[in-house]
Design a protein around this nucleic acid. Structure first.
Lengths: 197, 197
DNA sequence: CGTAGTCTTGAGTATCCTCAACGAGGGTGG
DNA sequence: CCACCCTCGTTGAGGATACTCAAGACTACG
């Protein structure tokens, strides 16, 4: 495997792959953050998934990618694996095949959690769940302080809300004493119970 | 593989597996329809996925299932595959390993499409997209006439809407001439363009 | 120092949810 | 056979929520 992987560093906004590109590689985020996006006919962006270090992506049963993946922060590094060659190696290496399966199963788990989150009723619940999810994924849930690597716009497109609504929900959670906010991006969880309710 | 598979027939409402059950099998719908559900703390049901003939499910990187899967219609038949044994066979059979990967990739595609659909803004768009999706999945999109196998309640929980809103959206689409409805469940697509917009 | 991007707040409106009522259809039991 | 219950589906009214439009503050960057 070591000989196959290519690692690239990207600036914010740079594309890792684009919609309709041939799906010839699999990817893993090494550091930083990426977003998997769709753009609707009306020009509205949807973020299908945030990709954090350790997340594999680019899996598809088709020949072309459906979504676009872009780096969210400067210096995001991505490992690329040539799909066909990895599959060939996996044919003779059950352990590698298992790793691939598990990476795919992880993607399924993330997406299912996402369907549940995006299906929540109120903006406040969505944003609360988002903060809890990020605390979990950024620091294994062990830390009360998180620094969001993405903008309010990204959060809005991730939660299917308007930016203003995200902003208001965060203000709301501040005023309720569930969180505190330092600067724009640093959030401290004060009352986790209130967020999970 | 032939010796490993167990096929069961279920009545509507019967569980295939339940949340927190040990994840020891993989499944495939042979006929009928099943729903993958989560129930929120507030008692609200979310349908994470509808499972149609040919859809594989039960994939997880964990030891326990997170969701519950139930038959939606009487006579739904499900094939069960013992996970460990299938994995052991796959270790020596690259073709089987490929099939598993592709089934998992299909599940990813379905879920991604779902995140996009559920993230749509208005109820009318959601219901329109739902009808188009079902036409696609029930008959490869070739047919203008579809018979919905699930209730309005199921549709509502799938789209994260209230039942009343689903009902109103369908009435709306009827009045706009985009569809016609015979009985409760049979829908004929008149103007596909109007649905996709 | 100006510009572009980000974030917040306000006001008004559209949409959807809740509560309520009602009709149709399918079983079940008397 | 019919009364009854239950689920399902539809419609209406009223209120809550989030969206749109608008404006302004703040930051980073050239």
């Amino acid at each position: 495997m070591a000989g196959l992987v290519t690692t690239t560093s990207l600036r914010r906004g740079e594309e890792i792959y684009s919609s309709e590109d041939p799906a010839e590689q699999w990817y893993c985020i090494v550091s930083g953050l990426a977003r998997k996006c769709a753009v609707s006919a009306a020009g509205r962006r949807r973020i299908v998934d945030f990709l954090l270090p350790g997340d594999f992506f680019g899996f598809t049963a088709r020949e072309e990618h459906v979504f676009t993946v872009e780096a969210v922060v400067d210096g995001t590094t991505v490992a690329r694996y040539p799909r066909r060659r990895v599959e060939t190696i996996a044919n003779a290496d059950p352990e590698l095949a298992l790793l691939i399966r598990e990476a795919a199963f992880e993607a399924i788990s993330r997406l299912q959690a996402r369907v549940v989150m995006i299906g929540r009723t109120t903006a406040r619940r969505k944003v609360s769940a988002f903060i809890v999810e990020m605390a979990q994924r950024l620091s294994d849930g062990s830390d009360r302080v998180i620094v969001l690597p993405m903008s309010r716009y990204d959060i809005a497109d991730y939660l299917a809300l308007a930016v203003e609504t995200v902003s208001r929900a965060i203000t709301d959670l501040k005023e309720c004493g569930a969180i505190t906010v330092s600067g724009k991006r640093q959030i401290t969880i004060i009352d986790r119970g209130a967020l999970e309710r």
